[in-house]
């Protein structure tokens, strides 16, 4: 049986199904807890489920806790051999509204792979900013205006938050590299305990990207070091995706409607410089430059 099927309702060119099928390719049959959001809406309409694995959606902010309950039940009922437990939650569900449940899941050490599908805003409801929206992004709740150049603050550092909880495996990935996602999902399951995988996923409508440009744009996020691909095992950085001839952030920004204003806004240069600084710091911190 397929673990995730065609006929789901994702927009053409959406990154989420790429992320999901790549994770499931690595995990095999598993239990999925999914937060309210794009993925849930495109895959779990009554009578039209796209899932070939046992799947549950409860509410927006509790998928980490629901997964913890599944894991506990499997343990209590002696059914742990049925498969691993995986969470799929969006960036808002992870970094904002659901961070309490996620912290509890980490803290109690549940044997769960938590996958954050990071499309950098509440895209299901129309591109409202989340804690993982990057600075300068023009969202419907942080619009650019005469004074403000879009979102002000940087992305919440979920990797550090996961590491601070002593999650056994922490990694970032991108829909630009599906085979890497599969490898990381598989690798994650070699560790017992809470695991965190954050996957950068293009939202063609929210970001204002042509469907055909989705993967090239996702690649540029990695190639500019704005989205570093890193991998921690037991708290140690073990692998990073090196970048040959790192590109300036403008190349990534100019392809997306959400950043278009930065090229004419009075504060645009400042924000672009800030983004470049973030990229430079990522490159330095993780030793990304090949």
């Amino acid at each position: 049986m397929k673990l995730f099927g065609s006929g789901h309702g994702a927009c053409p060119g959406c990154g989420l199904p790429i992320a999901v099928k790549s994770v499931l390719e690595g995990t095999g049959p598993c239990f999925v807890a999914n937060a309210t959001g794009c993925l849930e809406i495109i895959s779990s309409q009554y009578g039209k489920s796209a899932w070939g694995v046992p799947y549950i959606h409860s509410v927006f902010e509790n998928s980490a806790a629901v997964a913890a309950g599944i894991e506990a039940a499997l343990k209590a009922l002696g059914r742990k051999d049925e498969g691993p437990v995986v969470v799929f939650a969006g960036d808002g569900a992870t970094a904002d509204i659901g961070i309490g449940c996620l912290s509890g899941m980490f803290d109690r050490g549940h044997d769960i792979l938590y996958v954050c599908l990071d499309n950098e805003a509440y895209q299901n409801t129309g591109n409202q900013q989340s804690g993982l929206t990057p600075p300068g992004s023009n969202t419907t709740t942080t619009p650019s205006g005469k004074v403000l150049p879009g979102k002000i603050k940087p992305k919440k550092d979920m990797v550090s938050i996961a590491l601070a909880h002593k999650a056994v495996y922490v990694a970032t990935a991108s829909v630009a590299y599906p085979r890497d996602i599969t490898r990381k999902a598989k690798r994650a399951l070699e560790f017992e305990g809470p695991k965190y995988l954050q996957i950068h996923s293009v939202c063609v409508t929210g970001w204002g990207v042509d469907g055909k440009q989705a993967i090239p744009v996702a690649k540029l996020a990695v190639e500019t070091a704005l989205y570093p691909l890193v991998e921690y095992e037991n708290g140690q950085l073990v692998r990073v995706k090196k970048i040959k001839d790192r590109k300036p952030v403008e190349e990534y920004l100019k392809l997306q409607r959400r950043f278009r204003h930065l090229f004419k806004h009075p504060k645009g240069k400042e924000v672009i410089a800030e983004l470049q600084k973030i990229a430079d710091e990522n490159a330095k911190k993780y030793g990304l430059d090949a």
Partner: peptide, 16 residues
């Protein structure tokens, strides 16, 4: 509202 698996396959999105 439990759903059966992979019923999405009946949705032919090919005409999108």
């Amino acid at each position: 509202a439990v759903s059966r698996p992979l019923e999405s396959l009946k949705i032919k999105t090919g005409d999108w």
